[in-house]
Design a protein around this nucleic acid. Structure first.
Length: 423
RNA sequence: GGAGAGAUGGCCGAGUGGUCGAAGGCGCAGCACUGGAAAUGCUGUGUGGGGCAACUCACCGAGGGUUCGAAUCCCUCUCUCUCCGCCA
């Protein structure tokens, strides 16, 4: 959530920044609402002071003389003030709610360093790692080689659930599990504390990270319970510290977490209908950081490197892309995507998204920290990134490690986690 | 699912209708004492909104009610703990 105070002070800059990401919220209207709110609050607060004064008088009188003739008069006066207050409170609350609800739907402002652009074509390739795998033999797309090897089964998954689900079989299920274990082990080794959070979260958590209220239709919901299936571990992990005041000495806090992710993929009909690329349920290992604002940029860079590290160990060619303002997610101010090389299609596909949210999520989720010896509290910064999406990693392995004879070798680093070295 | 108990400031804990934003302790910070430290003593120490100075308002799990006045009384909800039941 944006800070209305910041908007008030930099109306033009904020408006321009939003326009760069294709958002046309009228910030001046929000400021007008805030003016209204302040005015009502001042009136109310003055009346309340008056009422408190009268109450004290009643108290004093009652103690000295319980039947003092002025008491009834004062009570009457207090009641009159109370009525006025009640009217103001109603008006104020309405304005406050309206302002709040509107602010919740305004996306984050892009960081000044985020390239300005109008579509994903304006994203910037920052660096490329490894060589694109272009063997002489044809490479089968992962879903074909997967079904051929008997490790991916879509038909039965569709019977059991719906389209866009998969059933992993035998060595495939094992590979999925090995990838999860490998990634968690590697991130833990590099200083991320592993957590296993709830896979169902309440509405407040989704609001905290920004999925609600605007993107309700992207998530699966358990209507009866006000619980939602997590679309990403970002939601439960970031909300772990909701409404807490952390000590600055605790920061940065770094967590890694495995969760399944559930997404309705509304609006993506016809896209990536085959294979593991776009499913309603997929596994992911996520990295989440809570950091001091002064350190958020360098922590972001190192987060990207931690995700890249996994691809490097797996020896999968990839590139790092910095998203332009138009392609930025709702809550992000700056974002790098890692795109892995998929030889069957001859293209790079997103396998990780590493975002810096600034204090946007911290405001929504009320994530604060306090510095010893310093007055007051401040909002911290949140960052997260996939490290990595498991299913898409499996795609990349099935294609990049595919041999002319149809076998698929396993990356060396996975051997300790697997019972085999090739499929 | 059934029965009971509880929720107060960073922590512990007092407070059953008025001067309580809240005793006391711990912790923390500053000062004094000391060569330095410990111990001791003194002082200070919640969050948020408005003004941005004085000041003012709100907040004792959440929401509502009674009252001139609620941490204190009433109602609803949430959560925690104990016992029983069920269960991976």
């Amino acid at each position: 959530m944006l800070d209305i105070k910041v908007i008030r002070q930099n109306l033009e800059e904020c408006q321009t920044a939003l326009r760069h990401r294709g958002d046309n919220t009228d910030l001046a209207a929000l400021v007008a609402l805030d003016d209204q709110r302040r005015q009502l609050e001042q009136q109310r607060s003055a009346l309340e002071a008056e009422a408190n004064e009268v109450q004290k008088q009643v108290g004093k009188l009652k103690q000295s003389d319980p039947h003092h003739p002025d008491i009834d008069h004062l009570k009457q006066k207090a009641n009159q003030i109370k009525e006025k207050i009640a009217a103001l409170v109603t008006a104020e609350e309405a304005v406050r709610q309206q302002l709040h609800q509107q602010l919740l739907t305004v996306p984050n402002l892009p960081h000044p360093s985020t390239p300005i652009g109008s579509s994903e074509a304006d994203n910037r390739v920052v660096r490329t790692w490894g060589e694109e795998y272009k063997p002489r033999h044809p490479v089968l797309p992962h879903w074909e080689i997967g079904e051929k090897l008997g490790i991916l089964n879509f038909e039965r998954a569709v019977k059991v659930a719906q389209t866009r689900f998969v059933n992993l079989v035998g060595a495939g299920a094992q590979l999925e599990r090995a990838l999860i274990n490998f990634m968690l082990a590697e991130h833990s080794r590099r200083g991320y504390q592993e957590v296993m959070p709830p896979f169902l979260v309440n509405s407040q958590s989704l609001q905290g990270t920004g999925q609600l209220p605007k993107f309700a239709s992207d998530a699966f919901r358990c209507q009866e319970d006000d619980l939602w299936l997590v679309p990403t571990a970002e939601v439960p992990v970031t909300n772990l510290y909701r409404d807490e005041i952390l000590d600055s000495s605790q920061l940065p806090i770094k967590h890694c977490a495995y969760t399944p992710c559930f997404r309705r993929e509304a609006g993506s009909y016809g896209r990536d209908t085959r294979g593991l690329i776009r499913l309603h349920q997929f596994n992911k290992v996520e990295l989440v950081k809570f950091v001091l604002p002064s350190e958020s940029e360098q922590e972001h860079e190192s987060l990207v490197q931690d995700a890249e590290h996994i691809l490097q160990l797996l020896k999968l060619p990839y590139r790092v892309v910095e998203l332009c303002t138009a392609d930025l997610g709702f809550a992000a101010r700056k974002c790098y995507d890692l795109e892995v090389w998929l030889p069957a299609a001859g293209q790079y596909r997103e396998i990780s998204s590493c975002s810096n949210f600034g204090d946007f999520q911290a405001r929504r989720a009320n994530l604060r920290y306090k510095t010893k010896g310093k007055k007051g509290t401040e909002f911290l910064h949140t960052l997260n990134g996939s490290g990595l999406a498991i299913g898409r990693t499996m795609c990349a392995i099935l294609e990049n490690y595919q041999q002319p004879d149809g076998r698929v070798l396993m990356p060396t680093v996975l051997h300790p986690f697997l019972g085999y070295t090739a499929l």
